[in-house]
Computed example of a mutant assay.
Amino acid sequence: MADELELLRHANPVPSDDPRFHDRPLDRPAEARLDALTRAGRPRPDRPRRAPTLGRLLDGLRPRRPRRSRHWAFGLGAAAAVGAVVLTLTLSGPTTVPAVAAPRPLVVAPGSAALPLDRLAGLAAASDDVLRLRQGTHVQSWSLSMTSGPGARPPVTLPEERVVRWAADGSHTELVVATDPRHPGRPVVTDADPVPRTVQDGHVLSRRTYPPSWSDAPPRAEPPHDAARLRAYLDEIDRINPMGTDELLDAVAELLDNWTLGSRETTALARVLADAPGLRPVGAVTDRLGRPGQAYVYDDTARSVRRMLILDQTTGAVLGLEDTVTRADPEYGVEAGAVMSYRAWLR
């Protein structure tokens, strides 16, 4: 505390022994120093905001209940009418390349049969695939970077691929690469301050090694393969809010950001999802990595968000999760129908 107080004393625009301090206005130099001091901690109005949860991304909509701080929930940007809006972002030089701001939301195949989750759980239990649980993850994401306020720029899609691998000693590595499998070999938009920029496909954004961690709390703890215990495990990931379907989907995403599930855990998860209120089957889809699956939709009317969970129709494995806004947020330039979040998990 002493260090902070000393800093404040040095920053004092008018020393205590200055005769002007008592009941007199500050002179111009003092006003300038005071103004600089009070502005020092303010956030920059044009700083990009990448929220850790979809609720914060949609500050203009109904605010979400407080949640524990989490790693950034991957998302997908969108533009007006969900069309592919072209932006020109500058490389480190005079060359410019067009960057597609928003692909369209996933569409259910017309006339496809909707497979109920309880039936899918039965198919998963009978599957011949015998996959083992593995700590670590491999996820492809499209995340949204956007600003608000005067001079705000349009939302921009940031495609990334993240691979997390754990070692026997409890340490783990995380590799994040800028890449978009929809456009292999083309420059990729990545986040930068104050504006996004483009980098070459496969550009390493970060490579980190973390020391051993022996946490025994979810999602670090090994997930169970019994449906009832897995439900309790997912509930423990978010201890702040009651476990509704929206919170369940968030917990599932966090689980998959830490673990690659085996066959038994996948079956248990399908049974947990089968009991989720409001999560309804809508038919077959092809995900953004070209994999066939079954789509299950939950409408969060309170936050005006439509959430689509995509599962492998044979094994029950979660392939992806897509969140779409059903009401516009003018503050951030987000239109109704915009895909705000998409991530695809791989083995």
Rank of each mutant, 00 (worst) to 15 (best):
H10Q: 11
N12W: 06
V14M: 04
V14K: 00
P15I: 07
D17T: 06
D18C: 05
H22N: 12
R39L: 11
R42F: 06
P43C: 09
R47G: 14
A51I: 06
L58W: 04
R65F: 10
R68S: 01
A78E: 07
A80L: 09
A81D: 13
A81V: 03
V82K: 08
T90Y: 05
T95L: 13
V100P: 03
V107F: 09
V108L: 11
S112H: 04
L120D: 00
A125C: 02
A126Q: 05
H138P: 01
L158N: 07
E160I: 08
E161V: 15
E161L: 09
V164D: 13
R165E: 13
S171Y: 12
L175F: 05
A178H: 07
D180N: 14
P181F: 10
G185K: 07
R186H: 15
P187V: 08
T190G: 13
A192W: 04
D193Q: 13
V199E: 06
S206L: 11
A217N: 02
P218T: 12
P218R: 14
A221K: 02
A228F: 07
L230S: 02
L230Y: 03
D235P: 01
I237V: 15
D238Q: 13
P242N: 02
G244N: 10
E247T: 06
E247Q: 12
A253N: 02
L255R: 07
D257S: 05
L261S: 03
R271P: 04
R271D: 03
L279G: 09
V282M: 10
D287N: 13
R291C: 09
R291P: 13
Q294F: 07
Y298F: 15
D300H: 02
T301P: 00
A302K: 14
S304K: 14
R306L: 06
R307D: 12
M308E: 06
M308D: 01
T315H: 00
G316K: 06
V318R: 00
L321M: 04
V325H: 07
T326S: 00
D329M: 12
G333Y: 03
G337R: 07
A344G: 11
